[in-house]
Amino acid sequence: MDFTITSEVVDKVAKLKLTGELDSLSARVFQKEIEKVALESPTELVLDLENLSFMSSAGLRVLIFSKQKMGVGLTIYIVKPQEIIVDTLEKTGLQHSVNIVDQYPV
């Protein structure tokens, strides 16, 4: 399944919408997008994962990379992830470092 990503940064809030399957190939696209929005030094990163159906460890690594790139002040919101992706986040302890929410603004 094709992976697509869109992003916008408004008032220091970076919003990214990911659709499709996030594997090692598409994680490169995700990382490039993170690098792009990082240039605007956002304080909040909002990832809309409602239509993301697969996430490999490459996707998790980009999440970790985001925090390392944009600094400890960055708050990460994950909006409407599918249950199976929440499982992966929980299994790897990443749910402690992100906010899983049903909508943004919360």
């Binding site: 490999s56 460890s57 999440l63 925090k67 390392q68 600094g71 400890v72 302890g93 402690h96 470092s97």
Partner: peptide, 19 residues
């Protein structure tokens, strides 16, 4: 122990084989 570290201090490798 790694899983409880804040994201900015976490080692980036090993997650794939763990999963």
């Amino acid at each position: 122990e790694d899983f409880n570290l804040p994201l900015e201090e976490r080692p980036i490798g090993g997650l794939g084989i763990y999963l």
